[in-house]
């Protein structure tokens, strides 16, 4: 999933921080969706919170290098892995 798509569907979820992590709950009329809530670790939480329509993967990677003790290549890989994992949310892109 690309950043623009994820940014456009973020409003269909409710997120809450628990310790350093994030619980993500789909905002949906279908009660069964409650089986589809998921969690993000500290890195995932940081990326999720920084996803917006005007940001690029490079910009988010740069922010990650400032927040965490990682190099730019690792940060770029983390963002790409995160976005590919978010493909499971494609069904909310309607």
């Amino acid at each position: 999933m690309d950043i623009q798509t994820l940014s456009s569907i973020k409003s269909k979820f409710v997120a809450r921080q628990v310790a350093e992590e994030l619980v993500i709950v789909p905002l949906s009329g279908n009660v069964a969706q409650m089986n589809e809530l998921f969690t993000l670790n500290e890195t995932g939480k940081f990326i999720w919170e920084n996803i917006s329509v005007d940001k690029t993967t490079t910009q988010i990677s740069a922010l990650m290098t400032e927040e965490f003790d990682i190099d730019e290549q690792t940060a770029q890989q983390d963002v790409e892995i995160f976005l590919s994992q978010m493909d499971i949310l494609n069904k909310y892109n309607k």
Partner: peptide, 26 residues
């Protein structure tokens, strides 16, 4: 942590069409 919250909340009976409902549950 978050894993415990998400796993338990999955068995809550709810109409989750409203953000305020979900926030209250969370």
């Amino acid at each position: 942590g978050a894993l415990a919250v998400s796993k338990v909340m999955a068995f809550c009976i709810q109409n989750n069409f409203d953000k305020s409902f979900i926030n209250k549950r969370l």
